[in-house]
Computed example of a mutant assay.
Amino acid sequence: MFFKRQYSIDSFLASLNHWQKVNLYTVLMLGQNNISYREAKRQAIVSDDEKLSFLLRKSLNSPDPKM
């Protein structure tokens, strides 16, 4: 079951284009951290897919995603 769920997240992220990934990363960063939009966007542009995957999993699986 874990493998299927992991694959679903990975396949979802693989289906996004670059700017969709940047926007998703930006929204996740804003929701989980106390940073500005500009800083979240800057981090999103230089980030990799592994970090985006981590942020998405954290948001989906945490009972309190904003820590």
Rank of each mutant, 00 (worst) to 15 (best):
Y7F: 13
Y25Q: 13
W19P: 00
S59R: 09
I45W: 11
F3T: 09
N33W: 03
D10E: 15
I45P: 04
F12M: 06
A40W: 09
I9L: 08
M29K: 14
S11P: 05
F3H: 11
A40M: 07
P63S: 08
D10P: 01
Q43M: 10
N34S: 05
R5M: 14
L52P: 08
V22C: 03
L13F: 04
R38T: 14
S8K: 12
A44N: 03
S11V: 08
P63A: 02
N17S: 11
H18C: 05
N23Q: 14
P63L: 00
N33Y: 12
N33C: 07
I9Q: 01
W19F: 14
K4Q: 12
Q43T: 00
W19N: 15
T26C: 13
M67V: 11
I45M: 12
F2S: 09
L28E: 05
L56D: 00
M29D: 03
D48I: 05
V46K: 02
K51E: 14
L30R: 04
S47T: 08
Q32A: 13
R5C: 10
K21L: 04
G31V: 07
A14P: 00
S36W: 09
D64F: 10
F54Y: 15
S53Y: 05
D49W: 00
I35T: 02
F12I: 02
E50V: 11
F2D: 10
S15I: 03
P65W: 02
K66I: 04
P63R: 07
D10S: 13
S62W: 07
A40T: 01
I35P: 01
S47L: 02
K66C: 15
P63I: 03
S8V: 08
L16Y: 10
M1Y: 13
P65G: 01
Q20V: 04
I35W: 03
H18D: 11
I45K: 14
Q43N: 13
E50N: 10
A14Q: 06
L52F: 01
R38Y: 09
P63E: 03
K51N: 06
L13S: 08
